[in-house]
Design a protein around this nucleic acid. Structure first.
Lengths: 152, 152
DNA sequence: TTTGAAAACCAACCGAA
DNA sequence: TTCGGTTGGTTTTCAAA
């Protein structure tokens, strides 16, 4: 799909605030409401806009902690990876999981309420994940920046 | 603010799809439309729902790459940190930045279009960040899971 | 919880580039 | 032919009863 400057303006705006009415959005990108709505619909249908979601405040929600956890498996076979990944997907406390290049490790992002919660996650959830041989956690002192915006 | 099971159901649902109409949402959480709307408004006003945003598909957008970059500064003074963090916030390709516990490093999440783009970011953006003495990048082969949902 | 007015959506149609 | 604008019926919101 061809994206022009107006489409980019729509995407930038909606990545900041998807609750804008089409009327307001159309003003910001200097378009008529109907043209704006048509473009937005196309961006959704094309799959470029995948979904629109509510973002919660982790502190207000009582889940202020973030840790990055490196995990090494005892085997890199396809089956071992699939088993591990299926288990990861089922754990809500693991909000992100990446397969790393180079050393066949995984990097997990884990969110937690407090130190006790992190310990629970470590011992009851992470350690029992299938195939795990090494776990190394990096706690974060502070979130400097966290954006869902893609630099379109 | 007091959160009960129905509030949690609303939050879980809106974290998946914030485009639901109030009527649809109210059915899913087994509430009347007006009661549901009142609760949702309260959740927004309380700050628990911080914003609602459009999530783009990185592949369709042509920005499929993710790297995690560890950065060490030559100084940990308040002023050095502030300067570094202000610079980080101004870079759209750096989508996340955490101050790590333990070794006073930062962990950055960087998104990129292709290998050439990553090299550009590395040499033109990351290396010139104020105070940087060490940069270590971890590329990701694959995104196994990436969720914006908090485990409420 | 119900209701009704105001607002927003969005499909169909028209016109210009 | 494609893209933006206009119109009007339909849906949704949301505050008052």
């Amino acid at each position: 799909m061809k994206i022009d400057a107006v489409d980019r303006a729509i995407l930038i705006t909606l990545q900041d605030d998807a609750k804008l009415t089409n009327a307001e959005l159309s003003e910001r990108v200097h378009l008529s409401p109907s043209a704006c709505l048509r473009r937005t619909k196309l961006l959704e249908e094309s799959g470029l806009i995948r979904r629109t979601v509510a973002i919660l405040d982790p502190r207000v929600a009582g889940i202020p902690g973030t840790a990055y956890v490196s995990v090494t498996l005892d085997s890199q076979g396809r089956k071992a990876l699939d088993t591990f990944e299926a288990a990861v997907r089922a754990v809500p406390e693991i909000t992100e999981c990446y397969l790393l290049a180079g050393q066949h490790d995984y990097l997990l992002r884990v969110v937690y309420r407090d130190a006790a919660d992190l310990e629970r996650i470590h011992t009851d959830i992470l350690t029992p994940l299938p195939g795990v041989v090494r776990i190394q956690s990096q706690l974060t002192l502070r979130t400097v920046k966290r954006s869902t915006k893609l630099p379109i």
